[in-house]
Design a protein around this nucleic acid. Structure first.
Lengths: 144, 144
DNA sequence: GATCGAACGAGAACGGTTCTCATGACCGAG
DNA sequence: CTCGGTCATGAGAACCGTTCTCGTTCGATC
């Protein structure tokens, strides 16, 4: 299943005219092993051999290829996670004190109703929806 | 009702040890008149007499006082809107092509179920939720 | 192995935002 | 009404996360 992940990543990059290099694979591995979106400093901390500029460049490439997703909150750093179709549909708890972001899911029934309501809104306003984003903002257990 | 708005803004600023000056009132007026969150360039465009540095400073002060809310998407500029309890609870259509953000609401029933599901999640993970955020990401009618 | 284009990494450059500081406005005391 | 002190203002400098540049290195292909 990790093999699948790398195969998918490789395919998507190739479709975008890019290679699946060791550095890019390392980034995907780090994101796959995490249960929360990571900032670039966090990624570099885990893999000291990655260069900052390359990390930025490769994450941008992986994002364009649809392999990773970039999240930006009010805190100073962007965060990266695997694209949603490579993991499972989930949402984020965002701590407005420390900036930390962790994943959560809601029951399928709620998700389904929400989806229905949103597609109605989109249709009404001529908006082509690609995805929705549901975050809970507050303070996490450790900042509390 | 606009009078109420200014009275509330003034009260909240004073509670934070700040004055409700003409510049700050101008910002609140601009945001109140808009049906979408505005970037600083957009604000300055509407009111040419506002200085950029003061706009940044005053919006930060208004945000700390709980009068305005700052929204950050993947595009280059932050956007500002009135705090949710000064308007009505709403969500955002975010165009990933032009970056434009517009408001929308969902039926109260859906909102209610969502609220219930979220508070359950928050409790389970020891997270103190302050608000939720639901955005629809895609391409708007004019970019389509 | 040779070759050539793409990926890499160190550092410079960029740009939205924040900070600095001299000036001006406001408010209370006398 | 005037003086003083405090805070807001605005032009520009500084900041810092991110992007770009460019010489070097890697790796796929023959």
């Amino acid at each position: 299943m990790t093999a699948d992940l790398h195969a998918t990543a490789s395919t998507r990059l190739r479709a975008d005219g890019q290679r699946y290099t060791p550095r890019r694979r390392a980034l995907v591995d780090l994101l796959a092993d995490s249960d929360q979106p990571l900032t670039i400093p966090q990624l570099l901390e885990h893999r000291k051999d990655l260069a900052q500029s390359s990390a930025y460049r490769n994450l941008a490439i992986l994002e364009r290829a649809g392999v990773v997703h970039r999240i930006v909150t009010t805190d100073e750093f962007s965060r990266y996670e695997l694209a949603e179709d490579l993991t499972e549909h989930h949402h984020h708890l965002i701590c407005s004190s420390c900036g930390d972001v962790t994943d959560f899911t809601v029951p399928a029934a709620v998700e389904h109703d929400l989806e229905a309501a949103l597609s109605k809104v989109a249709k009404r306003s001529g908006f082509r929806a690609r995805s929705h984003r549901l975050d809970l903002v507050g303070t996490c257990a450790t900042c509390e």
